[in-house]
Computed example of a mutant assay.
Amino acid sequence: MPNYICSTCGTQYVETRQPPESCLICTDERQYVKKSGQRWTTASELRQSHHTTIKLEEPGLISIGIEPQFGIGQRAFFLRTPHGNVLWDCIPLLDGALVEMLNAMGGLAAIAISHPHYYSNVVEWSREFGNIPVYLHAADRQWVMRPDDCIHFWQGETRPLLEGLTLIRCGGHFAGGSVLHWGAGAEGRGVLLSGDIIQVVADRKSVSFMYSYPNHIPLGPAAIQQIVNAVEPFPYDRIYGAFWDMVIERNGKTAVKSSAERYLQAISH
């Protein structure tokens, strides 16, 4: 039986003979079902119509996406460290060429994901690289559509992943919404891989924060302050967002603070 993948959000489900009636991720108020209705695909069908693409972001960091765009359109990151390699966030396509390339660079030691919209087909990724652990925040446990023993639910506000890498729970977009801090990134100035928990926006000088991006549902002041407080103890200068070319190259920490102040001022009126 196939593991069906939602064509709108890219989430993979447990094996079923027929596609699920609906995608629980997309019927949540943070997502949507397209006007054309619920559509499903499978991993094998996706490999026939799409391919992965990569981009070197900086030494030790490669971004991975899908062409043509599929689902939400996020990118994943392959992060190399002397202590092992990590996949941050996930995409619903894993092809042979990509597996060969990543294995040639040392494979993967772990996977961590920012929030449920990017859980994707993470179980397939784990199995392909030797049943490696997948770290998801326990507050988002209910949104796992394909449970598996590879999934490890972490709790609390921070969790060391590998040496020099720390998961930080920010909340906001989802209760367990998290970012990844890479201390050695940006030539030692520090990097945040932020998904869309802290969303790098079009000017690439500021960020925003939303409960729902497609449906334009904002967050309240307490949620914004929680996000800012969560990342404040960590040194970082560069921020990589969820989508291609959405990068704040310098002064990322200042951008988060000033963007939060701007946001709070806007909603106060």
Results as ranks from 00 to 15, higher is better:
Ala109Leu: 01
Gln31Tyr: 04
Asp95Cys: 12
Tyr119Pro: 00
Glu124Met: 11
Tyr236Lys: 09
Trp125Cys: 00
Leu93Lys: 03
Ala110Tyr: 15
Lys55Gly: 00
Gly37Ile: 07
Gly195Met: 02
Val134Lys: 14
Ala76Thr: 02
Thr52Leu: 15
Ile239Phe: 01
Gly84Ser: 09
Glu187Tyr: 03
Val33Gly: 09
Asp140Arg: 15
Ser258Val: 08
Leu24Tyr: 05
Leu193Glu: 13
Ser268Leu: 07
Leu94Glu: 01
Glu57Tyr: 04
Ser22Ile: 02
Pro218Ala: 12
Tyr4Cys: 01
Glu45Lys: 11
Ala223Pro: 04
Val256Ile: 12
Gln48Glu: 14
Gln12Trp: 07
Ser208Ala: 01
Ala76Asn: 08
Thr11Ser: 14
Lys35Ala: 14
His50Tyr: 15
Glu58Asp: 07
Gly177Met: 04
Pro116Cys: 13
Lys205Gln: 14
Glu45Asn: 11
Leu264Ala: 09
Ser120His: 05
Gly10Met: 08
Asp95Thr: 14
Leu192Gln: 06
Trp244Glu: 13
Ser126Tyr: 13
Arg238Thr: 09
Gln155Arg: 14
His117Thr: 07
Gln12Asn: 04
Thr81Trp: 00
Ala97Pro: 08
Tyr213Lys: 03
Pro68Met: 13
Asn215Arg: 10
Tyr240Ile: 07
Val33Tyr: 12
Asn229Leu: 03
Lys35Asp: 03
Pro82Asp: 14
Gln18Glu: 04
Arg47Asn: 06
Phe234Val: 10
Gly176Ala: 05
Arg204Asn: 05
Glu67His: 01
Phe234Ala: 14
Leu161His: 12
Asn251Ala: 10
Gly130Ala: 08
Arg141Asn: 02
Tyr32Leu: 06
Arg39Glu: 07
Thr42Leu: 04
His137Gln: 10
Gln155Met: 11
His173Asn: 07
Thr52Asp: 06
Thr158Gly: 02
Ile62Tyr: 11
Gly177Ser: 12
Asp196Val: 07
Trp154Leu: 09
Ile111Trp: 08
His115Thr: 01
His152Asp: 08
Pro68Asn: 07
Gly60Cys: 11
Cys6Arg: 12
Ala112Trp: 06
Ala109Asn: 09
Ser259Thr: 08
Lys35Asn: 10
Thr158Cys: 10
Asn103His: 02
Arg204Gly: 03
His181Cys: 07
Leu46Pro: 04
Pro235Asp: 14
